[in-house]
């Protein structure tokens, strides 16, 4: 874990990799994103949290080029860019790991990792090179949970699948990896593995955006927490500076009442944990 920044606020060590300023997006009359600001830095895990309908997905799809933002400034590596397609985002080094992972069960790990971007020599697949690079990538992420990169994805556990999907996203010299609810369907042990992997991505120097409904995951692994509330960015704070209860309060009300007295914290925390659980259940359905 990195050292917490001195002030209450996002860690401001260097120029952010991705910087959104005043981004807006509407679908017809519905204003989904209103003047959203977001900073994502290399080597940091930025958690993006918010209740259902807060605009997390829309924001991510805009960053990944699936939608185009209506207005605002999209700055990447210090330059203003206009991204209109997923391919363009990929070319910039932005990769998204979707919740359903998009893996082919009938193909093996190497085949899945290189799907659509196979390495060929003289028109034929260069399986040896692909297998080597897949092994290197997995080793670079310290993944030891997969026995062979030649086993079919159908034979993998949920955590292993998530690992493969994440490994695929870092294969292409990507700089920003966006993970959509990577632990939603996993058990305790596998969640732990995946969170370690997420941390390792950032420690390897990548910028990571983590979307999650699980506050424990977020507080465990994130450096920054960006809270969306009804299409606005409620705040982006240093994860070290907030408590579980405060994050939940930000998610549910969009603002923070004055710091509660120490005695009240425990109670509030307990209550909000309960409400967070309720939220989680609603999200699952």
């Amino acid at each position: 874990m990195t050292m917490p920044a001195p002030d209450f606020g996002p860690t401001t060590t260097d120029e952010p990799l991705l910087s959104l300023r005043g981004v807006t997006k509407s679908f017809g009359a519905v204003e989904v994103l209103r003047e959203v600001n977001l900073d994502v830095r290399l080597g940091k895990v930025t958690a993006l949290v918010g209740d259902n309908g807060a605009g997390k997905s829309t924001l991510i799809k805009g960053v990944a080029g699936i939608h185009t933002f209506d207005g605002g400034d999209y700055r990447y590596e210090g330059e203003s860019v206009h991204i209109t397609s997923p391919k363009q985002a990929n070319a910039l080094g932005i990769e998204v790991v979707y919740q359903d992972l998009a893996l082919c069960d009938n193909l093996d790990i190497v085949e899945n990792m290189f799907l659509g971007r196979e390495i060929t020599s003289a028109g034929l697949l260069d399986d040896a090179t692909m297998e080597k690079r897949a092994n290197e990538t997995l080793a670079g992420l310290s993944v030891r949970t997969v026995k062979s990169v030649r086993q079919k994805v159908a034979s993998l556990s949920g955590g292993q699948r998530q690992t493969v999907a994440i490994a695929r996203s870092v294969l292409w010299n990507s700089k920003l990896v966006i993970l959509d609810e990577p632990t939603a369907a996993l058990g305790v042990a596998q969640t732990e593995q995946v969170l370690k992997l997420v941390r390792r991505l950032a420690d390897n120097g990548l910028a990571v955006i983590l979307i999650s409904h699980n506050m424990n995951d977020v507080l465990q692994v994130a450096d920054d927490i960006a809270v969306l509330y009804l299409g606005r960015m409620a705040t982006q704070v240093d994860a070290k500076k907030v408590t579980h209860a405060q994050v939940v309060e930000l998610i549910t009300t969009g603002r923070l009442s004055t710091d509660p007295p120490p005695a009240a914290v425990a109670v509030a925390e307990e209550e909000s944990t309960n409400s967070a659980v309720t939220n989680d259940q609603e999200d699952q359905s």
């Binding site: 992972l101 998009a102 082919c104 009938n106 193909l107 085949e111 659509g116 971007r117 196979e118």
Partner: peptide, 19 residues
């Protein structure tokens, strides 16, 4: 050929992989 297997296995995954 690889893409044929991919489409047969999971067409949506294949589409998102740019196939």
């Amino acid at each position: 050929g690889r893409h044929i297997y991919a489409v047969g296995g999971n067409a949506e995954a294949a589409r998102r992989s740019g196939i």
